[in-house]
Design a protein around this nucleic acid. Structure first.
Lengths: 223, 223
DNA sequence: ATCAATTGTCAAGAAAAGTTCAAGAAGCAT
DNA sequence: ATGCTTCTTGAACTTTTCTTGACAATTGAT
Protein backbone atom coordinates (compact mmCIF):
# COMPACT_ATOMS: atom_id res chain seq x y z
CA UNK A 1 0.00 0.00 0.00
CA UNK A 2 1.50 3.28 -1.06
CA UNK A 3 2.01 5.74 1.74
CA UNK A 4 1.07 9.36 1.29
CA UNK A 5 3.02 12.22 2.72
CA UNK A 6 1.85 15.79 3.08
CA UNK A 7 4.82 18.09 3.06
CA UNK A 8 4.48 21.65 4.27
CA UNK A 9 7.71 23.43 3.54
CA UNK A 10 8.31 26.89 2.17
CA UNK A 11 11.82 26.31 0.87
CA UNK A 12 11.11 25.08 -2.62
CA UNK A 13 14.49 23.50 -3.11
CA UNK A 14 14.15 21.61 0.13
CA UNK A 15 10.66 20.63 -0.94
CA UNK A 16 11.94 19.19 -4.17
CA UNK A 17 14.77 17.37 -2.50
CA UNK A 18 12.51 15.70 0.02
CA UNK A 19 9.86 14.86 -2.54
CA UNK A 20 12.40 13.21 -4.79
CA UNK A 21 13.96 11.33 -1.96
CA UNK A 22 10.67 10.05 -0.62
CA UNK A 23 9.70 9.15 -4.14
CA UNK A 24 12.65 6.81 -4.29
CA UNK A 25 11.30 4.99 -1.31
CA UNK A 26 7.91 4.55 -2.82
CA UNK A 27 6.10 7.37 -1.05
CA UNK A 28 3.71 9.69 -2.77
CA UNK A 29 4.34 13.23 -1.62
CA UNK A 30 2.10 16.24 -1.93
CA UNK A 31 3.93 19.44 -1.09
CA UNK A 32 2.75 22.91 -0.16
CA UNK A 33 4.75 26.03 0.53
CA UNK A 34 1.77 27.87 1.88
CA UNK A 35 0.29 26.51 5.12
CA UNK A 36 -3.17 27.90 4.43
CA UNK A 37 -3.37 26.05 1.17
CA UNK A 38 -1.99 22.95 2.79
CA UNK A 39 -4.62 23.05 5.51
CA UNK A 40 -7.38 23.59 3.01
CA UNK A 41 -6.17 20.59 1.11
CA UNK A 42 -5.87 18.61 4.31
CA UNK A 43 -9.44 19.40 5.32
CA UNK A 44 -10.68 18.04 2.01
CA UNK A 45 -9.78 14.56 3.12
CA UNK A 46 -8.13 14.37 6.52
CA UNK A 47 -7.55 10.64 6.24
CA UNK A 48 -5.75 10.87 2.94
CA UNK A 49 -2.28 11.22 4.42
CA UNK A 50 -0.29 8.76 6.45
CA UNK A 51 2.13 11.31 7.78
CA UNK A 52 2.63 15.06 7.64
CA UNK A 53 5.99 16.75 7.56
CA UNK A 54 5.74 20.28 8.81
CA UNK A 55 8.26 23.05 8.70
CA UNK A 56 7.84 25.37 11.68
CA UNK A 57 9.13 28.44 9.92
CA UNK A 58 6.32 29.32 7.63
CA UNK A 59 5.00 32.45 6.04
CA UNK A 60 1.50 33.61 7.01
CA UNK A 61 0.96 31.20 9.88
CA UNK A 62 2.73 29.95 12.92
CA UNK A 63 3.77 26.34 12.58
CA UNK A 64 2.30 25.53 15.97
CA UNK A 65 -1.09 26.75 14.90
CA UNK A 66 -0.93 24.52 11.84
CA UNK A 67 -0.04 21.64 14.07
CA UNK A 68 -2.92 22.31 16.44
CA UNK A 69 -5.42 22.59 13.63
CA UNK A 70 -4.30 19.34 12.10
CA UNK A 71 -4.45 17.46 15.35
CA UNK A 72 -7.84 18.94 16.18
CA UNK A 73 -9.22 17.50 12.99
CA UNK A 74 -7.55 14.14 12.66
CA UNK A 75 -4.75 12.33 14.43
CA UNK A 76 -2.39 12.11 11.49
CA UNK A 77 1.21 11.63 12.63
CA UNK A 78 3.25 14.82 12.34
CA UNK A 79 6.97 15.16 11.99
CA UNK A 80 8.28 18.62 12.69
CA UNK A 81 11.13 19.77 10.52
CA UNK A 82 12.65 22.93 11.87
CA UNK A 83 15.78 25.02 11.78
CA UNK A 84 18.26 24.26 14.48
CA UNK A 85 17.58 27.58 16.16
CA UNK A 86 14.03 26.54 16.93
CA UNK A 87 15.13 23.54 18.90
CA UNK A 88 14.21 25.29 22.11
CA UNK A 89 10.64 24.85 21.07
CA UNK A 90 11.01 21.13 20.91
CA UNK A 91 9.16 20.40 24.11
CA UNK A 92 6.46 22.68 22.98
CA UNK A 93 6.14 20.57 19.90
CA UNK A 94 5.64 17.38 21.82
CA UNK A 95 2.97 18.99 23.90
CA UNK A 96 1.06 19.54 20.73
CA UNK A 97 1.09 15.84 20.05
CA UNK A 98 3.91 16.01 17.58
CA UNK A 99 5.20 12.57 16.84
CA UNK A 100 8.77 13.28 15.97
CA UNK A 101 11.19 16.06 15.42
CA UNK A 102 14.04 16.69 13.02
CA UNK A 103 16.42 19.61 13.23
CA UNK A 104 17.53 21.06 9.95
CA UNK A 105 19.80 20.42 8.38
CA UNK A 106 19.28 16.70 8.29
CA UNK A 107 19.93 13.87 5.95
CA UNK A 108 17.01 12.94 3.71
CA UNK A 109 17.66 9.37 4.68
CA UNK A 110 17.13 10.25 8.31
CA UNK A 111 13.72 11.54 7.43
CA UNK A 112 12.81 8.32 5.73
CA UNK A 113 13.85 6.37 8.80
CA UNK A 114 11.66 8.55 11.01
CA UNK A 115 8.72 8.18 8.71
CA UNK A 116 9.12 4.47 8.64
CA UNK A 117 9.35 4.34 12.40
CA UNK A 118 6.19 6.37 12.76
CA UNK A 119 4.27 4.42 10.21
CA UNK A 120 5.27 1.23 11.92
CA UNK A 121 4.11 2.68 15.21
CA UNK A 122 0.93 4.10 13.74
CA UNK A 123 0.24 1.13 11.53
CA UNK A 124 -1.92 -0.58 14.09
CA UNK A 125 -4.50 -3.19 13.22
CA UNK A 126 -4.52 -1.80 9.76
CA UNK A 127 -5.31 -4.52 7.35
CA UNK A 128 -5.43 -3.92 3.68
CA UNK A 129 -5.68 -5.83 0.48
CA UNK A 130 -3.30 -6.10 -2.39
CA UNK A 131 -4.11 -8.45 -5.18
CA UNK A 132 -4.84 -11.89 -3.77
CA UNK A 133 -3.50 -10.92 -0.37
CA UNK A 134 -4.89 -9.41 2.76
CA UNK A 135 -2.16 -8.15 5.00
CA UNK A 136 -2.36 -7.25 8.61
CA UNK A 137 0.73 -5.31 9.55
CA UNK A 138 -0.14 -5.39 13.24
CA UNK A 139 -0.30 -9.15 13.61
CA UNK A 140 1.97 -9.68 10.61
CA UNK A 141 -0.48 -12.07 9.12
CA UNK A 142 -1.09 -12.57 5.47
CA UNK A 143 -4.27 -14.15 4.23
CA UNK A 144 -4.51 -15.59 0.80
CA UNK A 145 -7.77 -17.21 -0.21
CA UNK A 146 -9.01 -18.39 3.17
CA UNK A 147 -5.54 -19.44 4.12
CA UNK A 148 -3.58 -17.45 6.68
CA UNK A 149 0.12 -17.50 7.46
CA UNK A 150 2.11 -15.35 9.82
CA UNK A 151 5.26 -13.71 8.64
CA UNK A 152 8.26 -12.68 10.65
CA UNK A 153 9.13 -9.02 10.88
CA UNK A 154 11.77 -9.18 8.20
CA UNK A 155 9.56 -11.18 5.91
CA UNK A 156 6.79 -8.66 6.35
CA UNK A 157 9.12 -5.75 5.63
CA UNK A 158 10.39 -7.45 2.52
CA UNK A 159 6.92 -8.41 1.40
CA UNK A 160 5.65 -4.89 1.90
CA UNK A 161 8.50 -3.43 -0.05
CA UNK A 162 7.95 -5.82 -2.91
CA UNK A 163 4.28 -4.98 -2.86
CA UNK A 164 4.93 -1.27 -2.76
CA UNK A 165 7.02 -1.63 -5.86
CA UNK A 166 5.04 -4.26 -7.61
CA UNK A 167 5.86 -4.88 -11.21
CA UNK A 168 9.06 -2.98 -10.58
CA UNK A 169 12.47 -4.47 -10.09
CA UNK A 170 13.74 -4.37 -6.53
CA UNK A 171 17.38 -4.98 -5.75
CA UNK A 172 18.62 -6.92 -2.77
CA UNK A 173 20.20 -3.74 -1.51
CA UNK A 174 16.83 -2.07 -1.50
CA UNK A 175 15.35 -4.95 0.41
CA UNK A 176 18.16 -4.81 2.93
CA UNK A 177 17.31 -1.18 3.44
CA UNK A 178 13.60 -1.78 3.53
CA UNK A 179 13.99 -4.33 6.28
CA UNK A 180 16.50 -2.13 8.15
CA UNK A 181 19.13 -4.83 8.06
CA UNK A 182 22.82 -4.10 8.54
CA UNK A 183 24.41 -2.79 5.38
CA UNK A 184 26.87 -5.65 5.23
CA UNK A 185 24.14 -8.27 5.14
CA UNK A 186 24.93 -10.94 2.59
CA UNK A 187 22.80 -11.50 -0.47
CA UNK A 188 22.26 -15.09 0.61
CA UNK A 189 20.35 -13.80 3.59
CA UNK A 190 17.87 -11.99 1.39
CA UNK A 191 17.55 -15.01 -0.84
CA UNK A 192 16.75 -17.08 2.19
CA UNK A 193 14.05 -14.69 3.36
CA UNK A 194 12.61 -14.68 -0.11
CA UNK A 195 12.71 -18.44 -0.14
CA UNK A 196 10.88 -18.66 3.18
CA UNK A 197 8.42 -16.02 2.07
CA UNK A 198 7.68 -17.87 -1.13
CA UNK A 199 7.16 -21.02 0.80
CA UNK A 200 4.72 -19.34 3.15
CA UNK A 201 2.64 -17.72 0.44
CA UNK A 202 2.76 -20.86 -1.63
CA UNK A 203 4.90 -19.62 -4.46
CA UNK A 204 7.32 -21.57 -6.61
CA UNK A 205 10.48 -19.87 -7.85
CA UNK A 206 10.52 -21.94 -11.02
CA UNK A 207 7.01 -20.98 -11.88
CA UNK A 208 6.27 -17.87 -9.87
CA UNK A 209 2.80 -16.51 -9.40
CA UNK A 210 3.93 -13.68 -7.16
CA UNK A 211 7.64 -13.19 -6.66
CA UNK A 212 9.80 -13.44 -9.69
CA UNK A 213 13.59 -13.54 -9.67
CA UNK A 214 15.32 -11.19 -12.05
CA UNK A 215 18.70 -12.61 -12.94
CA UNK A 216 21.45 -10.32 -11.77
CA UNK A 217 18.96 -7.66 -10.72
CA UNK A 218 16.88 -8.80 -7.79
CA UNK A 219 13.22 -9.63 -7.45
CA UNK A 220 9.92 -8.26 -8.48
CA UNK A 221 6.37 -8.75 -7.39
CA UNK A 222 4.21 -9.63 -10.32
CA UNK A 223 1.38 -7.12 -10.40
CA UNK B 1 25.53 0.53 -19.00
CA UNK B 2 28.60 1.41 -17.00
CA UNK B 3 28.19 4.34 -14.66
CA UNK B 4 30.95 6.89 -14.27
CA UNK B 5 31.83 8.53 -11.01
CA UNK B 6 33.94 11.62 -10.57
CA UNK B 7 35.55 11.57 -7.16
CA UNK B 8 37.05 14.74 -5.73
CA UNK B 9 38.84 13.84 -2.55
CA UNK B 10 42.20 15.00 -1.26
CA UNK B 11 42.82 12.15 1.14
CA UNK B 12 44.58 9.68 -1.12
CA UNK B 13 43.92 6.71 1.09
CA UNK B 14 40.23 7.51 1.15
CA UNK B 15 40.35 8.00 -2.59
CA UNK B 16 41.83 4.59 -3.13
CA UNK B 17 39.36 2.95 -0.77
CA UNK B 18 36.34 4.46 -2.47
CA UNK B 19 37.65 3.80 -5.96
CA UNK B 20 38.27 0.17 -5.16
CA UNK B 21 34.92 -0.27 -3.57
CA UNK B 22 33.00 1.36 -6.40
CA UNK B 23 35.03 -0.71 -8.80
CA UNK B 24 33.62 -3.83 -7.17
CA UNK B 25 30.16 -2.60 -7.97
CA UNK B 26 30.97 -2.00 -11.59
CA UNK B 27 31.43 1.74 -11.47
CA UNK B 28 34.23 3.44 -13.29
CA UNK B 29 35.76 6.03 -11.02
CA UNK B 30 38.00 8.91 -11.94
CA UNK B 31 39.55 10.50 -8.89
CA UNK B 32 41.17 13.87 -8.33
CA UNK B 33 42.78 15.26 -5.22
CA UNK B 34 42.98 18.73 -6.65
CA UNK B 35 39.68 20.46 -7.27
CA UNK B 36 41.05 22.72 -9.99
CA UNK B 37 42.24 19.75 -11.98
CA UNK B 38 38.96 18.00 -11.35
CA UNK B 39 36.99 20.95 -12.62
CA UNK B 40 39.16 21.27 -15.69
CA UNK B 41 38.56 17.64 -16.42
CA UNK B 42 34.87 18.06 -15.76
CA UNK B 43 34.62 20.98 -18.18
CA UNK B 44 36.14 18.81 -20.91
CA UNK B 45 32.99 16.76 -21.03
CA UNK B 46 30.36 17.79 -18.47
CA UNK B 47 28.07 14.96 -19.46
CA UNK B 48 30.68 12.28 -18.98
CA UNK B 49 29.85 11.59 -15.34
CA UNK B 50 26.70 10.18 -13.84
CA UNK B 51 27.44 11.33 -10.35
CA UNK B 52 30.07 13.41 -8.58
CA UNK B 53 31.30 12.73 -5.08
CA UNK B 54 32.75 15.83 -3.56
CA UNK B 55 34.74 16.26 -0.40
CA UNK B 56 34.08 19.65 1.15
CA UNK B 57 37.48 20.00 2.73
CA UNK B 58 39.73 20.66 -0.18
CA UNK B 59 43.01 22.42 -0.76
CA UNK B 60 43.02 25.50 -2.96
CA UNK B 61 39.29 25.85 -3.31
CA UNK B 62 36.22 25.90 -1.17
CA UNK B 63 34.06 22.88 -1.73
CA UNK B 64 30.97 25.02 -2.12
CA UNK B 65 32.56 26.92 -4.95
CA UNK B 66 33.32 23.67 -6.70
CA UNK B 67 29.75 22.67 -6.22
CA UNK B 68 28.41 25.92 -7.62
CA UNK B 69 30.68 25.76 -10.63
CA UNK B 70 29.63 22.24 -11.40
CA UNK B 71 25.95 22.98 -11.08
CA UNK B 72 26.31 26.14 -13.14
CA UNK B 73 27.71 24.10 -15.99
CA UNK B 74 25.69 20.90 -15.91
CA UNK B 75 23.21 19.35 -13.53
CA UNK B 76 25.22 16.31 -12.61
CA UNK B 77 24.08 14.82 -9.30
CA UNK B 78 26.45 15.67 -6.48
CA UNK B 79 26.96 13.77 -3.27
CA UNK B 80 28.80 15.72 -0.63
CA UNK B 81 31.18 13.76 1.49
CA UNK B 82 32.19 15.84 4.44
CA UNK B 83 33.79 15.50 7.84
CA UNK B 84 31.29 15.30 10.61
CA UNK B 85 32.35 18.72 11.87
CA UNK B 86 31.24 20.37 8.66
CA UNK B 87 27.74 19.13 9.02
CA UNK B 88 26.67 22.52 10.21
CA UNK B 89 27.15 23.69 6.67
CA UNK B 90 24.60 21.26 5.42
CA UNK B 91 21.81 23.66 4.83
CA UNK B 92 24.17 25.67 2.74
CA UNK B 93 24.64 22.57 0.66
CA UNK B 94 20.98 22.09 0.02
CA UNK B 95 20.76 25.59 -1.24
CA UNK B 96 23.40 24.73 -3.75
CA UNK B 97 21.33 21.94 -5.11
CA UNK B 98 23.34 19.16 -3.61
CA UNK B 99 21.59 15.86 -4.00
CA UNK B 100 22.73 13.98 -0.95
CA UNK B 101 25.12 14.05 1.96
CA UNK B 102 27.41 11.66 3.72
CA UNK B 103 29.22 12.42 6.92
CA UNK B 104 32.65 10.90 7.25
CA UNK B 105 33.43 8.36 8.36
CA UNK B 106 30.93 6.27 6.47
CA UNK B 107 30.65 2.79 5.17
CA UNK B 108 31.58 2.48 1.51
CA UNK B 109 28.45 0.40 1.19
CA UNK B 110 26.39 3.35 2.29
CA UNK B 111 27.93 5.39 -0.47
CA UNK B 112 26.92 2.79 -3.02
CA UNK B 113 23.35 2.91 -1.74
CA UNK B 114 23.24 6.68 -2.08
CA UNK B 115 24.66 6.54 -5.56
CA UNK B 116 22.10 3.98 -6.58
CA UNK B 117 19.27 6.02 -5.11
CA UNK B 118 20.43 9.08 -6.98
CA UNK B 119 20.91 7.28 -10.23
CA UNK B 120 17.48 5.77 -9.85
CA UNK B 121 16.08 9.24 -9.33
CA UNK B 122 18.08 10.76 -12.19
CA UNK B 123 17.68 7.88 -14.55
CA UNK B 124 13.94 7.89 -14.66
CA UNK B 125 14.39 7.08 -18.30
CA UNK B 126 13.63 3.55 -17.20
CA UNK B 127 11.12 2.69 -19.84
CA UNK B 128 11.32 4.15 -23.30
CA UNK B 129 10.27 3.44 -26.82
CA UNK B 130 12.33 2.99 -29.94
CA UNK B 131 10.62 1.99 -33.11
CA UNK B 132 8.50 -1.09 -32.52
CA UNK B 133 10.12 -1.71 -29.16
CA UNK B 134 9.49 -0.66 -25.61
CA UNK B 135 12.50 -1.27 -23.44
CA UNK B 136 12.60 -1.41 -19.70
CA UNK B 137 16.18 -1.24 -18.59
CA UNK B 138 15.25 -1.89 -14.97
CA UNK B 139 13.73 -5.28 -15.58
CA UNK B 140 15.57 -5.80 -18.87
CA UNK B 141 12.36 -6.52 -20.63
CA UNK B 142 11.61 -5.70 -24.23
CA UNK B 143 8.07 -5.46 -25.45
CA UNK B 144 7.22 -5.68 -29.08
CA UNK B 145 3.59 -5.51 -30.02
CA UNK B 146 2.01 -6.93 -26.87
CA UNK B 147 4.70 -9.54 -26.68
CA UNK B 148 7.32 -9.29 -23.96
CA UNK B 149 10.64 -11.04 -23.68
CA UNK B 150 13.33 -10.65 -21.08
CA UNK B 151 16.88 -10.18 -22.17
CA UNK B 152 20.03 -11.04 -20.30
CA UNK B 153 22.35 -8.26 -19.25
CA UNK B 154 24.69 -8.72 -22.20
CA UNK B 155 21.83 -8.94 -24.66
CA UNK B 156 20.35 -5.75 -23.29
CA UNK B 157 23.68 -3.95 -23.51
CA UNK B 158 24.14 -5.08 -27.08
CA UNK B 159 20.60 -4.21 -28.01
CA UNK B 160 20.89 -0.76 -26.52
CA UNK B 161 24.11 -0.10 -28.35
CA UNK B 162 22.62 -1.20 -31.65
CA UNK B 163 19.61 0.97 -31.00
CA UNK B 164 21.72 3.96 -30.07
CA UNK B 165 23.53 3.63 -33.35
CA UNK B 166 20.65 2.59 -35.48
CA UNK B 167 21.13 2.69 -39.19
CA UNK B 168 24.84 2.84 -38.47
CA UNK B 169 27.28 -0.01 -38.68
CA UNK B 170 28.51 -1.33 -35.37
CA UNK B 171 31.58 -3.52 -35.16
CA UNK B 172 31.89 -6.53 -32.91
CA UNK B 173 34.65 -4.75 -31.05
CA UNK B 174 32.25 -1.92 -30.27
CA UNK B 175 29.69 -4.36 -29.01
CA UNK B 176 32.29 -6.09 -26.86
CA UNK B 177 33.05 -2.73 -25.33
CA UNK B 178 29.43 -1.75 -24.98
CA UNK B 179 28.71 -4.92 -23.05
CA UNK B 180 31.90 -4.56 -20.97
CA UNK B 181 33.19 -7.93 -22.09
CA UNK B 182 36.85 -8.90 -21.91
CA UNK B 183 38.81 -7.53 -24.84
CA UNK B 184 39.87 -10.97 -25.95
CA UNK B 185 36.29 -12.13 -26.37
CA UNK B 186 35.89 -14.10 -29.57
CA UNK B 187 33.74 -12.89 -32.40
CA UNK B 188 31.72 -16.06 -32.22
CA UNK B 189 30.53 -15.01 -28.79
CA UNK B 190 29.06 -11.83 -30.15
CA UNK B 191 27.50 -13.69 -33.04
CA UNK B 192 25.91 -16.01 -30.56
CA UNK B 193 24.48 -13.17 -28.52
CA UNK B 194 23.15 -11.61 -31.68
CA UNK B 195 21.68 -14.92 -32.67
CA UNK B 196 19.93 -15.29 -29.33
CA UNK B 197 18.79 -11.70 -29.45
CA UNK B 198 17.36 -12.13 -32.91
CA UNK B 199 15.57 -15.20 -31.79
CA UNK B 200 14.07 -13.40 -28.81
CA UNK B 201 12.84 -10.41 -30.76
CA UNK B 202 11.64 -12.64 -33.57
CA UNK B 203 14.11 -11.65 -36.24
CA UNK B 204 15.50 -13.74 -39.06
CA UNK B 205 19.13 -13.21 -40.17
CA UNK B 206 18.32 -14.15 -43.73
CA UNK B 207 15.53 -11.67 -43.95
CA UNK B 208 16.15 -9.21 -41.17
CA UNK B 209 13.54 -6.75 -39.99
CA UNK B 210 15.73 -5.34 -37.24
CA UNK B 211 19.31 -6.53 -37.08
CA UNK B 212 21.20 -6.80 -40.33
CA UNK B 213 24.61 -8.42 -40.68
CA UNK B 214 27.16 -6.40 -42.57
CA UNK B 215 29.58 -8.80 -44.09
CA UNK B 216 33.10 -8.19 -42.79
CA UNK B 217 31.99 -5.20 -40.77
CA UNK B 218 29.54 -6.11 -38.06
CA UNK B 219 25.87 -5.44 -37.52
CA UNK B 220 23.44 -2.64 -37.79
CA UNK B 221 20.00 -1.96 -36.50
CA UNK B 222 17.66 -1.06 -39.31
CA UNK B 223 16.09 2.26 -38.43
C1' DA C 1 32.92 -22.15 -60.59
C1' DT C 2 36.16 -22.30 -57.01
C1' DC C 3 38.03 -20.88 -52.86
C1' DA C 4 38.91 -18.39 -48.73
C1' DA C 5 36.84 -15.57 -45.43
C1' DT C 6 32.84 -14.63 -42.77
C1' DT C 7 28.59 -15.67 -40.50
C1' DG C 8 24.86 -18.70 -38.20
C1' DT C 9 23.87 -22.12 -35.01
C1' DC C 10 24.58 -26.27 -32.26
C1' DA C 11 26.18 -28.33 -28.43
C1' DA C 12 29.29 -28.90 -24.55
C1' DG C 13 31.24 -27.21 -20.83
C1' DA C 14 32.54 -23.19 -17.85
C1' DA C 15 31.02 -19.54 -15.20
C1' DA C 16 27.75 -16.94 -12.72
C1' DA C 17 23.54 -16.35 -10.13
C1' DG C 18 19.69 -18.37 -7.62
C1' DT C 19 17.73 -21.81 -4.32
C1' DT C 20 17.88 -24.47 -0.46
C1' DC C 21 19.98 -27.07 3.36
C1' DA C 22 21.75 -27.22 7.63
C1' DA C 23 24.16 -25.58 11.58
C1' DG C 24 25.01 -22.35 14.61
C1' DA C 25 24.03 -17.48 16.50
C1' DA C 26 20.98 -14.36 18.19
C1' DG C 27 16.77 -13.03 20.18
C1' DC C 28 12.70 -13.76 23.00
C1' DA C 29 9.39 -15.65 26.17
C1' DT C 30 8.59 -18.49 30.04
C1' DA D 1 18.41 -20.67 32.56
C1' DT D 2 15.77 -23.25 29.02
C1' DG D 3 13.47 -24.00 25.11
C1' DC D 4 11.56 -21.92 21.05
C1' DT D 5 11.60 -19.04 17.09
C1' DT D 6 14.01 -16.33 13.95
C1' DC D 7 18.16 -14.89 11.54
C1' DT D 8 22.48 -15.47 9.13
C1' DT D 9 25.61 -17.57 6.21
C1' DG D 10 28.75 -21.06 4.11
C1' DA D 11 28.24 -24.84 1.21
C1' DA D 12 25.94 -27.94 -1.92
C1' DC D 13 23.07 -28.09 -5.55
C1' DT D 14 20.20 -26.22 -9.45
C1' DT D 15 19.35 -23.24 -13.14
C1' DT D 16 20.59 -19.79 -16.29
C1' DT D 17 23.78 -17.49 -18.89
C1' DC D 18 28.13 -17.17 -21.33
C1' DT D 19 31.84 -18.78 -24.18
C1' DT D 20 33.86 -21.14 -27.77
C1' DG D 21 35.13 -24.89 -31.03
C1' DA D 22 32.96 -27.31 -34.74
C1' DC D 23 30.89 -27.31 -38.92
C1' DA D 24 27.53 -25.93 -42.32
C1' DA D 25 25.88 -22.04 -44.91
C1' DT D 26 26.78 -17.83 -47.08
C1' DT D 27 29.36 -14.21 -49.25
C1' DG D 28 32.76 -11.94 -52.16
C1' DA D 29 36.78 -12.32 -54.94
C1' DT D 30 39.16 -14.31 -58.60
Amino acid sequence: MTKHVLLIEDDLQMQQLISDYLDDFGYVTRAFANPKEALEHFYDDPKAYDVIILDLMLPQMDGFDVCKKIKACHDTPIIISSARGDIGNKIHGYELGVDDYLAKPYEPRELVLRIEAILRRAGRTESFQVGDFTLDTATREVTIEEYTVSLTKIEMDIFLHLLQNRSHAVSREQLIQAASLPLDTKNRTIDMHISNLRHKIGDDPKNPKYIRSLWGIGYKFIG
